[in-house]
Design a protein around this nucleic acid. Sequence first.
DNA 1: TAGATTGTTAATCGATTAACAATC
DNA 2: TAGATTGTTAATCGATTAACAATC
Lengths: 212, 212
Amino acid sequence: MEVRKVSEAVIRRLPKYYRHLLILQKTGVERISSGKLAQQMRLNASQVRQDFNCFGGFGQQGYGYNVSTLLSEIKNILSLNQPYRAVVVGAGNIGTALANFEGFERDSIAIEALFDIDPALIGSSINGKPVLHTDELETYIKKNGISIGIIAARRSAAQNIADRMQAAGVRGIWNFAPMDLTEVEVPVENLHMTDSLLCLCYKMNQNNLYEE
Amino acid sequence: MEVRKVSEAVIRRLPKYYRHLLILQKTGVERISSGKLAQQMRLNASQVRQDFNCFGGFGQQGYGYNVSTLLSEIKNILSLNQPYRAVVVGAGNIGTALANFEGFERDSIAIEALFDIDPALIGSSINGKPVLHTDELETYIKKNGISIGIIAARRSAAQNIADRMQAAGVRGIWNFAPMDLTEVEVPVENLHMTDSLLCLCYKMNQNNLYEE
DNA sequence: TAGATTGTTAATCGATTAACAATC
DNA sequence: TAGATTGTTAATCGATTAACAATC
């Protein structure tokens, strides 16, 4: 299975396929054609086939795709067959919400600890996860084989945290701080909540009909 | 200022311009060229000019763009010159984080109440915002002129909530539930946190160099 | 005026969609 | 075998980038 440059657009669709296939499997659907899948997900059948063929052909002419096979292939493409250990820096609203959220566990992504500089928080725990002083970040990452660093701190601290996470050896950074990190070699996924909300404000005031 | 179909890609860049210009203004920068702005934001100068020209020309040949003017134009494009009242359905992790988050207020977006069906939560308040029973959703939206509905409930409830929000008159929906809403006429912005995390997992396992 | 930089048209690049031969 | 549907190539569409005349 030879993987070439996969476009960002394709990558962003992968979790959607994954989600949808999980539902299909749970519903007991055994096979699905690109046409049906496209219809359900509001995509184009050609696009679905093109997407899958970025990673090799998982289908069978005249039959379609076996849901379980496809699901496990996509799970594999997303590298969800290995566990991930994560830490969150910033035990504020977002950090707390993430620590309380159980949904990542299905994908074997476990938040193991939080870090903050607020003395009132240090030593406490959130959903059973310890809140430690940010000074201990590097040591903890190294000692516990943490591969994902989550930045849920204020903007002004984000770059420094990213640098330190990277130096300590994380393999990826999930950034909630509303800024673009620079000089980071590991992959960064930004999740800027406010940006999304502002896009909504924009769209709310366009008189375009939102009905493709 | 004649506005034609603005592409999704352009729309998604608008909040980033807004954010960056806010910083420039705060730093006391008075004017900026498309070239400089592009460099700072890691975009292309032509792209920057094209983007702005979707909405009319805000610049001046030989000078560039006045930061304050440009900022206020973009603020205007994003329709941030009006206040928005919002409610959140689902007073779980995400709902609580949103209610506690003060960052939206700068943009005059105020979360006024939360809704849930858990009797243990109803009657309480989060960051001064009441948690009400979801049965009261429609009444509240109508009575208080709520324009944004935020869905932070579980997947299985999301479509129903969306339908009810829309019927009650919200002008836009911000959806955190991991599913695609259907039959909604008002604009919907999806924010699927898990999708973003899964994209990170994908990228963490590609041996591409992430260094454009 | 000369230099800088926009607004805008044209060229390029990439992603989506269509078409169809291969084949289960 | 006939029908269905993939994998894949070709066509189309749209977004990004380049180029440059207009003009401050």
